[in-house]
Design a binder for these strands. Structure first.
Lengths: 241, 241
DNA sequence: GCACAGTCTTGAGTTTGGTCAAGGCTCGCC
DNA sequence: GGCGAGCCTTGACCAAACTCAAGACTGTGC
């Protein structure tokens, strides 16, 4: 079919957690209900409350999911990039998106019809199982986010955020900050000013931030800081490091 | 089979969102892999990191899901009661529970083997679809929780919590508080002391708390307060009603 | 180089929520 | 009734984070 996917992009799709377990036939079967969608920066893909008619895979660029309270406050729920799928759960629930979605940067997406997907699952249960695994993973991430918001300070949340981006398990390591600070702040549930101050606090724990990069002196030490309970921090402020 | 379920309980199970869409055959098929489990208050059902070998339906009592940081802080993620299922998502993900679970009160549960469930889904995809819908609903709840933690004050979170418990859409209404204040506080991400103070703040918005009951004078007014953005609250404090 | 816009940081003052400690309230038990 | 245990509330104090506002830094265009 006239799917405008480069071979590289096709491979990207095949590797997403959502599809990685599927046979080539099942995959191309699913692709029959798919279309490529290009979105300029700031473009809105869907709005909370809208019927969930599709799931998406990011081919390029950055996408944010957020909620707007009636008052107008925006809470960024999640941010996705190349190779990640989203809205798969929404497509099944009460049939409306629980969040709004917009492109942060210029973006390229694969859009798969929910109805089509639904049909395929009925035919081959394995697709359903893969999707269950995928939404479960999403759920797990949310659990961690809720925990972080409840039990950690801002600085600790950043530490954890950096650790997720760092590939190395031990020693020192440099992390590229993926999007701008205002967005990172929103994702972590704070204001840009607080993020700035929290980064400063991390300097005492071996994190150097310059431009769009963060240098972690010791991954172990940072992990230690991220996981330390509040009480310890309080006690430590008299005799720090 | 020797499933020790009363007819009432069986009906309860049939009505859970997780199973409500299933045919009687599919349901009794699933029940073949189920067992009833009784847990005294404080009993631990599973621990985070443990392989997720079962999903649960609460027949009676209160169950809490929580996470313990390495430091020892506890973050309550969710609380379930009669007629609700949980851990369905965990049973599929990376095969370990992302949270710990314990009975808050004495509790009675239906425990369904994950492996068994897995088999059934392969045979009848509809079970998979129901489960997808169910985990999606869970995901949606988490999204709202994340939003609440990021964008609302403690008082607003309680207001929303009360509104969820209130069945009436408008006018005045009395809500029974389901579990003790310490647990409510944990669920909402704050300390009991803060909960107490936040309840006081709600008095200005027509909420009267006595014993285990909360009286809401006007559901609309409360909703208005819950959804008001922070900025408005600040401005209002000089000229409060 | 200089002005400008955008982004990020800093500073001062305020609010929220956590901590610790003390005091009420309720309920069961003797 | 009196006592004590548990739970909830209050008060004083403090730290974290938000707001508003100003300043620094970066990169662009002239």
């Amino acid at each position: 079919m006239g799917l405008d996917l480069s071979p590289l992009e096709l491979q990207l799709v095949r590797r997403t957690p959502l599809f990685s377990g599927l046979s080539p036939e099942a995959l191309s079967d699913l692709m029959a209900g798919a279309a490529v969608q290009n979105a300029p920066a700031g473009n809105c893909l869907f709005t909370q409350g809208e019927p969930a008619e599709a799931i998406f895979v990011v081919l390029n660029g950055w996408i944010k999911l957020y909620r707007i309270t009636t008052g107008g406050t925006e809470a960024v729920i999640e941010i996705f990039t190349r190779g990640q799928s989203f809205a798969e759960a929404a497509a099944f629930a009460g049939a409306t998106y629980p969040v709004s979605c917009e492109a942060v940067t210029e973006a390229r997406l694969l859009r798969i019809s929910a109805r089509h997907l639904f049909d395929r699952i009925r035919r081959s249960p394995d697709i359903g199982l893969t999707m269950l695994a995928s939404t479960s993973k999403q759920l797990r991430l949310f659990v961690r986010q809720i925990e972080a918001l409840k039990a950690q300070t801002g600085a600790q949340r950043i530490a954890e955020f950096l650790l997720e981006l760092a590939h190395c398990e031990t020693g020192s390591c440099t992390v590229e900050l993926p999007y701008d600070k205002a967005l990172i702040a929103a994702r972590l549930g704070m204001k840009p000013e607080s993020l700035s101050r929290a980064f400063n606090r991390l300097k005492d724990h071996g994190v150097e931030v310059k431009q769009r990069q963060a240098e972690i002196a010791s991954v172990e030490a940072l992990r230690d800081f991220a996981e330390r309970e509040r009480a310890d921090i309080m006690k430590a402020h008299g005799a720090d490091d």
